[in-house]
């Protein structure tokens, strides 16, 4: 069931930061924020938990490191041992560059794939933007209206204090 959302557009970075902190203090639920560029401090103002993307990165990278090192070790010391300049067959120092590169490759691709899957950003999928100004010069804060204690009058007053430029209501997914 799609929720009713309430989008408030701001003209300045400071306004959306103040509005986000204020509506959260008053118990409103923030759905999302749409901004033209990364706004520092907005995640704290919105009360977002630290991203778990680092764990996804680690979970892709660690097995890749183990796989790269163990495959090289198996090739060099077990499957085809070659005496190069009297060095031991398991010359682990030479495995480091390939191990590092393979770890970075798998962790990077895995993290991007995780981001696309968890955010539903698959190719061909269109995501609605509540205010096209968010791609230009507007800072849009989206509040959840349905199912929460949303007092439209109080909300409008709070937002007006924060110099809201434009507000609009819409159904989630319909924008």
């Amino acid at each position: 069931m799609s929720r009713t959302l309430f989008a408030a557009s701001f003209a300045r970075e400071a306004d959306i930061l103040a509005a986000a902190a204020e509506v959260r203090r008053r118990g409103y639920t923030i759905s999302d924020a749409y901004v033209p560029y990364p706004v520092h401090g907005l995640d704290e103002a919105m009360g977002l938990a630290p991203s778990r993307m680092g764990w996804a990165c680690f979970l892709f990278g660690a097995p890749a490191l183990v796989a790269a090192l163990s495959f090289q070790g198996w090739v060099a010391a077990v499957d085809w041992p070659i005496n190069i300049g009297g060095k031991p067959f398991f010359f682990w120092q030479a495995f480091i560059p390939v191990g590092f590169e393979f770890t970075v490759l798998c962790a990077g691709l895995g993290t991007v794939a995780t981001l696309l899957l968890t955010q539903g950003l698959l190719p061909g999928r269109r995501r609605a933007v509540p205010d096209m100004g968010a791609t230009d010069d507007r800072f849009v804060l989206v509040l959840v209206k349905s199912g929460t204690a949303f007092d439209a009058g109080e909300a409008m007053a709070v937002l007006r204090d924060c110099r809201v430029v434009e507000t609009r209501e819409f159904l989630e997914g319909a924008a």
Binding site: I82, N83, I84, G85, G86
Partner: peptide, 20 residues
Amino acid sequence: QCGNAPCETVCPVLATMHST
């Protein structure tokens, strides 16, 4: 025919190595 052959260490394509 060095046991610790310096030439083998630097070959980028493993064109020189030690026999048993």
